[in-house]
């Protein structure tokens, strides 16, 4: 499992559903929604959120700049135990 877990936030009203991010994601996180936005586009969303590593490939290739990316280091079990102590 990747050291980092990521997440993306898509600006739903500005996404045009071009699918360029879907192809660019190395861990197959992104899919297109069944529902459409105000402009009638199926929009990008995290179909498989657990696989996101926060690499930002989707965001930098997004022609409309509608993806914001976050990532956080996963805590190992040892670290967690330490923290609990």
């Amino acid at each position: 499992m990747a050291k980092f877990k990521g997440s993306i936030v898509v600006d739903k009203e500005k996404c045009k559903g071009c699918e360029v991010c879907v192809v660019a994601c190395p861990t197959n996180v992104i899919g297109l929604s069944r529902e459409v936005n105000g402009k009638g586009f199926h929009i990008a969303f995290m179909e498989n959120p657990d696989a996101c590593t926060g690499c930002a490939n989707c965001a930098i290739v997004c022609p409309d700049g509608v993806i914001t990316v976050y990532k956080k280091e996963r805590l190992s079990s040892e670290k967690k135990i330490k923290e609990q102590k």
């Binding site: 877990k5 997440s7 700049g65 990316v69 976050y70 956080k72």
Partner: peptide, 16 residues
């Protein structure tokens, strides 16, 4: 880690 845990200013990697 839930989405809410990740989507925080301090974890921002990329924005427009």
């Amino acid at each position: 880690l839930s989405n809410a845990d990740i989507v925080k200013c301090e974890n921002l990697v990329y924005k427009r």
